[in-house]
Design a protein around this nucleic acid. Structure first.
Length: 578
RNA sequence: GCUCCCUUAGCUCAACUGGAUAGAGCAGUCGACUUCUAAUCGACAGGCUGAGGGUUCGAGUCCUUCAGGGAGCGCCA
């Protein structure tokens, strides 16, 4: 039940009538006609821009259209008044009963808020995709949490979502990993080793080296790389993926599919992906211009196999083979996305870190070329996280092996606080994450604010149940009643929920959910606090079941929506906080 | 040099994708706890939306120039 959509239908019907009566000309495009909540509540419950949108097309003054439209709308029983305002807005007030119906809908319709916006379209959301060379660090956390919430949001909005992790286990970095594990393996055998540049010195590999020793004994001692590299690579990446899966679990991040880069090699998949581009005339051998300005010392022109990505919006063509004939990292990525296109998704979303910003255009070009422009790819970049403690930066240098891991941060502040904090921000803005602030349990920290509201509602309900009152959603829906302006204000906010879900899903912006939850909580707290001044305003009326049910219906509806919203964000909705 | 992102109240951020007088929290000042959980609520104060130009009924939002910050720029991923 989406009141805004319903009201928009009324507006469109009224416009059709005006066309029939020849007040408006035929053939107008109503696509831009919107019904929105007004910025200022004093303007009414909803506003439509119909008159202004149509004025130019109809060659009429906006206010004249609005004047003609108003009586048509007030004829509908749901609309109490329609008032022309400003340059041609039509401010609508809805009948009081509309708001009570919203409360009933929340309590009786388990799908309230869910949307059929997605129409079951298949969406693939790829996120995290951290290299399998160590545990997740704070930077990964943001992409993980963002991607996870985005996937949940799209699912809630009616898409058929696949959550996918791309394991980069085919490149040089896993060779480095294997060599690093070999050193730890030698160490486990009691040898002195030195970690040179280009190896991973992190402590997390000690256990892997020891496990390798348990598995193969001394088989790899005093042997050249050719005897063990491939085996240790497999062993080590599997161990790293175990670490990462564990970290994801700590963060509450779900995955449906893990796709291995390695599976693309030796199977003809890369070759067939490139061939499909070649057939389109997008593959050629050539020499790239050197980058302007900053010319590398050792730059010299070399012929490479190139992808004509400029034909699909990129700035320069991109190499898919190195000058020695090996694939570049781009080639398996093309093959991977080719595979996704083949899997028949209606939409692809990649969540990348900011350091992959330069990669966006070529990836979009590749998908556009591979799917003949049929499969849209949206790439969401998550900007850097600056981790602070007490205002001072916490270092996270992977090279030094002292980076702050995702697990560290979960230990410090907890999963709920990380997730909510990181989602209370647009993905494309940098984020200062101060662990001291996030640990505070006050208004500075919105996660507790929202969770506390949920706990308060459940506490009232628990007390009512202890009085023997029927607090089932069905009973509450039956009794629901809005007595006070503050009640209506809360219900109006609830009415915005389905609309907000659609907007957030359309724009792939889960942070809008987090802000909405804070706003709903504020409205609820305002109403709740009235019970302090006057016993009449308390929700629980001891000894009066029907009155209690009538009042509690509203706040139970709040709890239902809070719980749904927190669920999308992957944050718990506790029944108690003491 | 080029590409992408960012710049909004003292601080951290919103602004429903072009709508009406740009809003919250924190910090500041004042007020409210023998609580249906004060992890809360109420009030005051705080702005040339980095700067200039353009597009139109209407711009924080779109285009453009510039300034400042960030990420990246063939044979790393």
């Amino acid at each position: 039940m989406n009141l805004f959509a319903q009201t928009r239908d009324l507006v469109l019907a009224a416009l059709d009538e005006l066309v029939e009566e020849r007040v408006l000309p035929e053939g107008l495009d109503f696509a831009n006609v919107a019904v929105e909540p007004p910025r200022d509540a004093a303007h009414g419950d909803m506003a439509t821009n119909a008159a202004m949108v149509l004025a130019k097309l109809a060659k009429m003054k906006p206010r004249d259209i609005a004047e003609a439209l108003a009586p048509k709308l007030t004829a509908a029983s749901q609309i109490e008044s329609a008032e022309v305002a400003g340059p041609g807005f039509l401010n609508l007030r809805l009948a009081h009963g509309s708001w009570t119906k919203i409360v009933e809908a929340v309590l009786t319709d388990s799908r309230f808020g869910r949307s059929d916006l997605g129409q079951g379209a298949k969406v693939n959301v790829e996120y995290v995709s951290a290299n399998p060379t160590g545990p997740l660090h704070v930077g990964h956390t943001r992409g993980a949490v963002f991607g996870d919430a985005l996937a949940s949001l799209l699912d809630y909005a009616g898409y058929d979502v696949t959550r996918e992790y791309y394991i980069s286990d085919g490149g040089a970095q896993v060779d480095v990993l294997a060599r690093s594990v070999y050193l730890r393996y030698l160490e486990a055998h009691g040898q002195e080793v030195a970690f040179e540049d280009g190896t991973y010195p992190g402590d997390y590999l000690i256990a892997v080296g020891a496990a390798l020793k348990d598995k193969v004994g001394d088989a790899y001692l005093d042997k050249g790389e050719q005897y063990w590299l491939s085996e240790i690579r497999d062993f080590a990446t599997e161990a790293m993926m175990d670490l990462i899966r564990h970290d994801l679990k700590l963060l509450g991040v779900q995955m449906d599919t893990f796709f291995s880069e390695k599976s693309l090699y030796g199977t003809g998949l890369i070759e067939s992906a490139i061939k499909s581009l070649d057939i389109k005339g997008l593959i050629y051998n050539g020499v790239l211009e050197p980058p302007k300005g900053k010319k590398p010392e050792d730059w010299e022109p070399r012929e490479q196999t190139l992808f004509k990505s400029t034909e699909h919006g990129d700035d320069v063509d991109r190499p898919i083979k190195k000058s020695d004939g090996a694939w570049t990292y781009f080639a398996p990525d093309i093959a991977y996305h080719y595979d996704k296109v083949q899997r028949d998704y209606d939409m692809l979303i990649d969540v990348f870190g900011a350091d992959h910003g330069g990669y966006v255009k070529r990836m979009k070009a590749a998908v556009s070329a591979l799917s003949d422009g049929k499969t849209p790819l949206d790439i969401k970049l998550t900007q850097l996280v600056k981790l602070l403690q007490n205002g001072e930066p916490l270092k996270m240098s992977k090279r030094a092996g002292t980076f702050v891991t995702a697990a560290d941060v979960v230990d410090m502040v907890g999963r709920d606080a990380i997730r909510f904090t990181m989602l209370t921000r647009k993905n494309d803005a940098p984020l200062d994450f101060d662990v001291d602030v996030v640990r505070q349990t006050n208004n500075d920290n919105p996660v507790f604010y929202v969770q506390y509201a949920h706990a308060r509602v459940q506490s009232v309900i628990a007390k009512a149940q202890a009085e023997g009152m029927d607090m089932s959603d069905a009973a509450l829906a039956q009794a629901a009643r809005l007595d006070h302006d503050a009640d209506v204000a809360v219900a109006k906010k609830l009415a915005e929920w389905p609309r907000l879900v659609e907007i957030a899903a359309k724009t792939n912006e889960p942070h809008k959910i987090a802000f909405y939850l804070s706003e709903l909580t504020a409205k609820f707290n305002t109403r709740y606090s009235m019970g302090r001044d006057s016993d009449d305003m308390k929700f629980l009326q001891i000894g009066n079941t029907s009155e209690s049910q009538a009042k509690i219906a509203l706040i139970r509806a709040v709890a239902v929506v809070l719980s749904a919203g927190l669920g999308i964000l992957g944050v718990s909705a506790p029944d108690e906080m003491r």
